[in-house]
Design a protein around this nucleic acid. Structure first.
Lengths: 247, 247
DNA sequence: CGCGCGCTTGATCAGCATCAATTCGCGTGG
DNA sequence: CCACGCGAATTGATGCTGATCAAGCGCGCG
């Protein structure tokens, strides 16, 4: 595997090779974490931030009865808790979904980098802005779509995001979530998630089996989920049409 | 009214007076906008960002049937669309709620400021991070709480945020939302919002009448809404216990 | 003074939760 | 090699939360 691979994503393609290398050199060795492992607990002070190298990691919050709400889902190339760099503690738990690989960046190193390399600081900010945009899409999804639409929308988002970092072959991708995990993201019970998936399968839109998604009718799926990928700012990020603070 | 008043909020109390003045000098004159006015439309290119000076402004996204989902609600001192500075277009509509006053910051001016004043750039980033944290609370609220809890949680959040900028007298504050607006934030119909408000009133928790909220039992309200204000990072922001990048 | 918007209340309906039971796949140990 | 155990998937029956439909009320404003 190309060693610079875990630096792509979230607009970091726009950094110069030197900047990418500088960033990568500040990261720790790659650590492998187990499925369902809680990596950081809500409220704890943090002094480093985590980048997903392989697999999926989510942020979640628990209600009074211990029920989990997934508040975001991160793919390779995503920082999971970059906000900890500025806020020094997290308002969510960080939990691995399936086995995953991560690297960590010490906050001292990040402070050093962002002080001397404004473009790196800028890319951190950009990453946070994309996070927020994705959060807004999740709010929209929970609020305005019903079960099938929510599910369709999430699959469209994941497909689009994975495609941006080269992890989706045309219309299929690996997704190591259980149906209950999916429900925790979509605010559905496991039982109902199962029924929705069956419906989507029977309608010829997609299959989700053996931790693998195959999208059979992307257009219909996007329509059902009212999915408009504009909020992922894909073209803006990958094509550096106009660089900020720089000619 | 103190002219520096509209600079407080979102951690900008931590800036030096000089930095606050510098920022304020970059803003346009205060503009008054009408109730329900759409200030920026989703997808349009933007070249300035807006700070709320007085009143309330929300971000919203519409579904296929034109139904609005409010994705965030901004109070005086909040930037509404600072992400437009980096992303150059918005993934949401900006809509005034009730009459409001705003100032705008030209993106060129912001670029200039953040280039020469890293602490200002940092405060912009921090503001984005708080936005994201609030988004996550909204996701949690929509996902894990039912109607009464959602409503309680939102009122707790608004009370806490308004208190941070000195706009809540102990347990009451102005809130120029209709019940339908509230429903658009909470994902409830106007009819059900009305029933929930009645229930909360009858239980002695709060009243919301004549665009004014009075909280009668804050503790019970917080418990019903499972509200933990940690995600607002209030103490961290107002008490500069440890300044980043600076002694 | 009447029109419209927001608030209020009642009746019915639908989406999804909940409860319950069975099956399937897979790793583990006898 | 097979019995066992456990988590995940699947399916059926029933109930609750909140949507929808409908109607009346209060009040500010043109």
């Amino acid at each position: 595997m190309n060693s610079s691979k875990f630096l792509t994503g979230r607009g970091r393609e726009r950094l110069t090779l030197e900047e990418q290398t500088l960033l990568e050199d500040s990261s720790s060795d790659v650590q492998t974490v187990k499925a369902r492992e809680t990596l950081v607990r809500r409220g704890e002070p943090v002094c480093s931030s985590m980048l997903v190298v392989d697999g999926f990691v989510c942020r979640s919050a628990d209600d009074h009865r211990g029920q989990r709400q997934m508040v975001s889902l991160h793919i390779p190339g995503d920082f999971v808790d970059l906000d900890g760099f500025k806020l020094k503690r997290l308002d969510y738990n960080v939990v691995a979904i399936g086995a995953a690989k991560v690297t960590t960046y010490n906050h001292d190193a990040l402070a050093d980098l962002s002080e001397h390399r404004p473009r790196l600081a800028e890319s951190f900010w950009l990453s946070s802005l994309l996070d927020a945009a994705i959060h807004r899409a999740w709010i929209f999804r929970l609020g305005r779509l019903e079960a099938e639409g929510r599910t369709a929308h999430l699959f469209c988002e994941l497909h689009a995001r994975l495609e941006m970092v080269g992890l989706a072959q045309s219309a299929s991708f690996a997704l190591p979530l259980t149906q209950i995990d999916l429900g925790a993201a979509l605010n559905l019970t496991g039982v109902h998630t199962n029924r929705v998936l069956r419906s989507l399968r029977e309608r010829g839109l997609l299959t989700f089996q053996n931790r693998k998604v195959e999208i059979h009718d992307q257009k219909a799926l996007a329509q059902l989920g009212e999915f408009d990928p504009a909020y992922l700012y894909a073209t803006d990020l990958i094509t550096p049409s106009r660089r900020p603070l720089d000619g």
